[in-house]
């Protein structure tokens, strides 16, 4: 390989996320030779890789929304609470019970499922509009503005569930989190659709440019005629909607809504995924695909910890070390030191 192409490859923002993911997969493969095996059972694909993808779906969704928020110099730490609220709404609206009618088991939902889904997503959107209002309208610091919903959100979710864990008994709803379509988990289709819409918006409209411009220099962007407020407002709304979709998958997956634990620490995972994907937490240039890889890294890491037989709680320690590692590698200070070193060696040569 020519040194130039190699340098370009390393400079590619997706290079390090990909290397990390590959390494993690290699670790998994070392401990579990069946890691890459995929088998077909009942027309469904099964295997560790599929499992990781499926489980990473909610995180991927939220992280995509978070990427846009972070790109505008913001942050949304309320996504976990939004997941709890939307999940509670979905579960409460669907609820459902098993009715035996004429000797046939049928599942009846409280309200029609499409309505329940619209309700859950609508409530999520409301959460996003609220955040957007505080950030873009009142001009609060994003971390403060979203902290409010983060603190109050779980209380609201409990208000909806009345402090109980609401169980869902409506079979068709389980399709979101557990269903398969053409052999592939249905959740992945949701991720794919959201991703395609996003990529189209970013690359086929000026949205990507505007978001990056606002992230790098909000004032200059506004002075250029970009409606920065509207943009920031919409970005928070969108992020909350991705959290709402994730909430549907999570609720469907565990067949219940737990206001206390649904989406717990999800905001942190999502931010971590964005950072791992190579997007600077200071805003500006962002990498949507990188974020997806970041989410997969987190899920693969979790999987590796499970398969190593370490207690799953250790996961947090590992994640913490990953956070520190990624941040230090991304840090301008370290780059400066490395650059100085490189400069010196070039001088010597």
């Amino acid at each position: 390989m020519k040194p130039d192409t190699f340098r370009n490859l390393i400079r590619n923002p997706l290079f390090w996320p990909c290397v990390t993911l590959t390494l993690l997969c290699a670790v998994n493969f070392y401990f579990n030779r069946g890691f890459f095996d995929i088998e077909i059972k009942d027309g469904h694909l099964y295997g560790s890789v599929i499992d990781i993808l499926n489980r990473a779906a909610p995180l991927m969704l939220i992280a995509m929304g978070m990427t846009l928020v972070i790109a505008t110099r913001g942050i949304d730490i309320s996504v976990g609470a939004t997941v709890a609220i939307a999940g509670a709404v979905a579960a409460a609206m669907i609820g459902g019970s098993l009715v035996i009618k004429d000797g046939v088991q049928t599942y009846v939902s409280n309200v029609p499922m499409p309505l329940a889904i619209a309700g859950a997503l609508g409530v999520a959107l409301l959460c996003g509009l609220w955040n957007g209002l505080l950030v873009a309208g009142a001009g609060m610091q994003p971390i403060v503005a979203t902290l409010i919903l983060m603190v109050a959100g779980r209380g609201i979710a409990q208000l909806i569930t009345e402090g109980q864990i609401v169980t869902v008994y409506y079979e068709p709803f389980f399709f979101f989190g557990n269903g398969f379509l053409f052999g592939i988990p249905f959740s992945l289709y949701i991720v794919a659709v959201v991703l395609i819409i996003l990529l189209l918006l970013i690359h086929r409209t000026a949205l990507g440019l505007f978001i990056e411009a606002v992230g790098v220099n909000p004032v200059a962007s506004r002075f250029s005629g970009i409606q920065a407020r509207t943009l920031v407002f919409s970005v928070y709304a969108f992020c909350a909607v991705t959290a709402g979709i994730a909430a549907l998958i999570i609720t469907s997956n565990v067949k219940s809504a737990d206001a206390n634990n649904a989406g717990l620490l999800m905001e942190l995972d999502a931010i971590l995924a964005v950072a791992l994907g190579g997007t600077s937490l200071a805003g500006g240039r962002f990498h949507m695909i990188g974020t997806l890889i970041g989410a997969l890294i987190i899920q693969t890491l979790t999987y590796a910890i499970y398969s190593l037989g370490v207690p799953p709680e250790i996961n947090m320690v590992v994640k913490a070390l990953v956070v520190f590692g990624v941040c230090v590698i991304q840090s301008p200070a370290l780059r400066e030191i490395l650059a100085k070193h490189a400069f010196r060696t070039r001088e010597v040569a």
Binding site: A206, L209, E212, A213, N217, A220, S224, I226, R285
Partner: peptide, 21 residues
Amino acid sequence: TEGIVADLSIRENIILALQAR
């Protein structure tokens, strides 16, 4: 602080206002 968007390319900076319009 009010004019250039430093991290973006010259191309992006030049077309920014036109695109915004």
